[in-house]
Design a protein around this nucleic acid. Structure first.
Lengths: 347, 347
DNA sequence: CTGAAAGCGCTAACAC
DNA sequence: GTGTTAGCGCTTTCAG
């Protein structure tokens, strides 16, 4: 047909349109639209004829066109650090469930902890005109989002706050969690407690360090420089940090870790160590209860983090115009054995 | 302005369009389009003026309109069972990386192992006109996809094959993996080996059962009915199955599990059991090497599964028209101790 | 209850 | 180099 000759090659494989359905059913375009969208005002008989044409043609509404006209995509974007990280799985799922309840689809992407990639991804999502955005930030400067937010893209940050802009954020209680973890070790008699954390530029990492420091200060305990190690979560780096703390003239008798990647490496090192060393890890880990001793952790509630953020987002989309707020989700200390090991009698 | 009065309320928060940019820069619409898309044929001076207008207005191209015109969304859909399941994390990420390399975004969703929800999600993605679809099927009848596939939606199934349609599938070697796991236990002297698997309706579950049966048959070993238990992965169900096998007059001396949820429960039960029982689990588990004994597993390569499926998808999108194929990704047995426990001397 | 016309914001095709 | 026109497939508006 001359009519279709102008179409781009792979134009949806030449799918039928409402116009095609209308022609086949012998009705007007708008009537098809009414049937497809379940609107009232169509005779049962007309509806049947239209439905037959739809089935015969294999018609499915093109939401791209619908979106262009309606101005809403009914989709939200979620940018996280790594889709493969088990910590983000429950968060991702929780966001999805809320989105689903609001009839929205979820577009996902990983920043790979790279600020440029984060920005690229976020702006691509804005170009797609997602209704809202949930971001676990990799970068520290989100001013690039200002025009987008001004233009109406609701945005909620999770796990870490936004940098240099005022925006909603839903965060775990890193400070309180780390403080309670350190306090737990102190309560079990430890006086030389090491902290092995992530890079201090990361908000949660510095908050956890602050919690550790506060707990020790509150207990009137000093902190030696040798007891604190911050850096990448690379096993090698962590491995060396642990060995160094245990090789001190007065070695640490307990360790608090700043996240689960660090924890795993520390567990491996301690398994080979002759003397028992107490350990409290930040973030829960699957099977932590099956280890011997069981791993005592400060558990974050990733699902609540995601659900809260998504609910906040849809609150905004529903017109909520209150000032940007910071919501803090509590952590929970789960004692399983490793954090209850007492210091050696001579320590 | 009267011009904007007709617009829907929340129309992208009234973002500027190319027309607005053109007016402000004093150029034609097409020139703006050229600048935005980096096309050649624009003077450096014109380009600068357009760029200034873009920045001043905070313009960002509306991809919804672009998609409508171009006929391709540059997005693919991934439907999996549960975004929160750690097994799917690496798969998800691998798919994302391939999509990203092809300039496509990823729309994600969970079927929650519910065929109706799978269908609903898949059809919603088709309405969005995703270029392609990667599906971990929950249901067993995918004929609902026939019109979509015919209309040009490339579709690849992963982890389990499609039901009642002929489509590409990328699968783990469930049969070979289970067979090698059982053979491993036989090689270590076991003659009474239990199998605790998932519901037999699930393709991978029945394949793994078949691998178990084949290994025992190949070794000339009989299989008692009491040694095989299939059903949900609910801890309670698995717990009872294990206890029953261990309470037989001639109890099993080794167990092969059908997936990681089952494995976790079995480990818990065996920890409390007086006699050591050998265990090989299907699927690797984080920290499996830290358990005592270390957990011997048949590891699937979820990332390869995802990458292979995504590559196949883009191969199709690039015009690949070969017949639907089934690609099998090998598994790997990782011996860590639990699978090398010998049977008791009297067994 | 039904349909014709306009237009969402962009790109393709073709002028100039 | 640049601009004009048409139209992607749908929803909105308004007239029958």
């Amino acid at each position: 047909m001359a009519d279709t000759a102008h179409r781009p090659e792979n134009r949806y494989g030449n799918r039928p349109t409402m116009k095609d359905v209308a022609a086949r059913a012998g009705v007007g375009l708008k009537t098809v639209s009414r049937v497809v969208n379940g609107e009232a005002g169509v005779t049962a008989d007309t509806e049947r004829r239209v439905q037959e044409a739809i089935d015969a043609l294999g018609f499915r509404r093109n939401d791209s066109a619908r979106v262009l006209r309606k101005g809403r995509t009914s989709s939200i974007g979620l940018v996280l650090e790594d889709l493969a990280d088990p910590f983000y799985g429950p968060l991702n799922r929780a966001v999805e469930e809320v989105a689903r309840a609001h009839g929205a689809l979820l577009i996902n992407g990983s920043s790979a902890e790279d600020p440029d990639r984060e920005q690229e991804l976020v702006l691509a999502l804005c170009a797609r005109r997602v209704d809202g955005l949930i971001v676990i930030p990799a970068g520290h400067d989100h001013r690039y989002l200002e025009p987008e937010i001004k233009a109406g893209v609701a945005t909620v940050f999770v796990d870490r706050p936004a940098g240099r802009i005022d925006a909603d954020a839903v965060l775990s209680d890193s400070f309180g969690g780390a403080r309670s973890g350190a306090a737990h070790l102190i309560a079990h008699g430890h006086r030389r407690i090491g902290f092995i954390g992530d890079q201090p530029g990361i908000h949660t990492a510095s908050e956890r360090l602050r919690g550790y420091r506060t707990a020790l200060a509150d207990a009137g305990l000093p902190i030696a420089d040798d007891w604190v190690s911050l850096g990448t979560t690379a096993p090698r780096r962590v491995h060396e940090a642990v060995r160094a703390m245990l090789a001190l003239p007065e070695p640490v008798t307990a360790i608090l870790t700043g996240n689960n990647r660090v924890t795993v490496t520390v567990v491996r090192v301690l398994t080979d160590h002759e003397r028992p060393v107490a350990l409290v890890g930040f973030d829960d880990i699957e099977l932590a209860d099956l280890l011997d001793p069981g791993l005592t952790v400060i558990a974050q509630d990733a699902a609540t983090l995601g659900r809260t953020a998504a609910e906040r987002l849809f609150h905004r989309l529903d017109g909520g115009a209150d000032a940007p707020a910071r919501v803090v989700v509590p952590t929970r200390l789960i004692a399983r054995g490793s954090g209850e090991i007492p210091p050696p009698a001579d320590g």
